[in-house]
């Protein structure tokens, strides 16, 4: 069960940074649809599949849990869009039996590469660490470096 599912079941934490909001699926879509579609396309580049995933994001009952998500609504949408896209990609790769993720990695483990593996390819930080033969702390630190070098944090 992920964090959004726990919030959805009212067993999760209470908001600490943001007050409770109550937006409908369509309002959320109008506000964050393009951003979510961009995220889904980064993980699933096929537009027709990405659109299906996008619909599943905004039709998901977990979307309601974003109303009480402790951080920003956008952060919740990013998390949800990625989770749905990774889930769909895993189903797809299990059907097509792609060995893309099992291929050994060659090259320098830059923050960009680590971010791509974790966010776009759907690997957990532990899996990324094993794949790149580095520690988990280094993987996590790369996320900080990635957003720092992108001038966002």
């Amino acid at each position: 069960m992920n964090e959004l599912e726990r919030i959805s079941n009212a067993a999760g934490p209470q908001p600490i940074l943001k007050p409770e909001r109550n937006l409908s699926s369509l309002e959320v879509y109008d506000q964050f649809g393009a951003m979510a579609y961009g995220i889904v396309l980064q993980i699933i580049p096929q537009p027709h599949l990405a659109q299906e995933v996008l619909v599943s994001v905004f039709a998901s009952p977990l979307l309601q849990s974003c109303n009480s998500y402790p951080f920003s609504y956008a952060a919740c949408i990013i998390k949800l869009a990625r989770a749905k896209a990774v889930e769909a990609k895993k189903k797809l790769t299990s059907l097509t039996a792609l060995e893309e993720d099992n291929a050994p990695f060659s090259g320098a483990p830059t923050p960009q590469v680590i971010f791509d593996l974790a966010f776009r390819r759907g690997l957990t930080p532990d899996e990324v660490a094993v794949k790149l033969n580095i520690t988990k702390s280094e993987v996590l630190r790369s996320f900080h470096d990635f957003f720092k070098t992108n001038g966002n944090a």
Partner: peptide, 11 residues
Amino acid sequence: SGILEAHLLGL
């Protein structure tokens, strides 16, 4: 440590 970024990305 980057744990905040990882948390916000759902990782």
